[in-house]
């Protein structure tokens, strides 16, 4: 049967200590144990990108990361990105461009987009498309998502 382990990590700036089954993945831990339901589970095998979140400064798949692997680490979810203001420009652009419909892919899409923007990604549309090709969106057809990300990069460049 399953084993348990105690983990301590920082989630959206708050230190959390919990006992988890070692088989629990990070996104299930955040959703069901911590109550941060913003990160979504779409496929549970690392393909759809809905569970993309930030662990120790890098965008990771919450379904391919075990909660115990985040022990001692720092996690930022879509809720944290909003509370800290880091996603302000992206959220405004996604709203203006209607770059979301059902919203289920959106938390992962924001995390992927932010990692691209913050490391200086270009506003080239194909480059943006390539970067977000790990994030399924079944509603928008992607164009508005590309538009929104491109807008934020251009605004950041003072264009």
């Amino acid at each position: 049967m399953t084993r348990d382990a105690r983990i301590t990590l920082t989630v959206n700036g708050e230190e959390i200590s919990a006992v988890v089954a070692v088989r629990t993945n990070l996104v299930d831990f955040l959703r069901h144990d911590v109550g941060l339901t913003g990160s979504h589970v779409g496929c549970e095998h690392g393909v759809c990108g809905a569970c993309t979140l930030e662990l120790n400064g890098k965008a990771v798949r919450g379904c391919l990361t075990l909660a115990v692997q985040a022990d001692g680490g720092t996690v930022t979810t879509v809720e944290g990105l909003a509370d800290s203001g880091r996603s302000d420009a992206l959220r405004a652009a996604f709203t203006r461009r209607n770059a979301l419909q059902c919203g289920f892919c959106t938390p992962g899409m924001l995390a992927s987009a932010l990692s691209y923007i913050e490391r200086g990604g270009s506003d080239d549309r194909q480059a943006i498309r390539d970067h977000i090709s790990g994030n399924y969106c079944r509603c928008t057809g992607y164009q508005s998502v590309v538009d929104a990300i491109s807008d934020v990069i251009r605004e950041g460049d003072g264009a």
């Binding site: 941060l36 339901t37 909003a82 992206l90 959220r91 979301l100 919203g103 924001l110």
Partner: peptide, 21 residues
């Protein structure tokens, strides 16, 4: 007009079935 619902969904405050506990 932009959708008012977008704000909630973009902050991870949607309420999907699996979010219910």
């Amino acid at each position: 007009e932009p959708r008012a619902d977008a704000a909630r969904l973009l902050q991870g405050r949607g309420r999907y079935v699996d979010d219910l506990n």
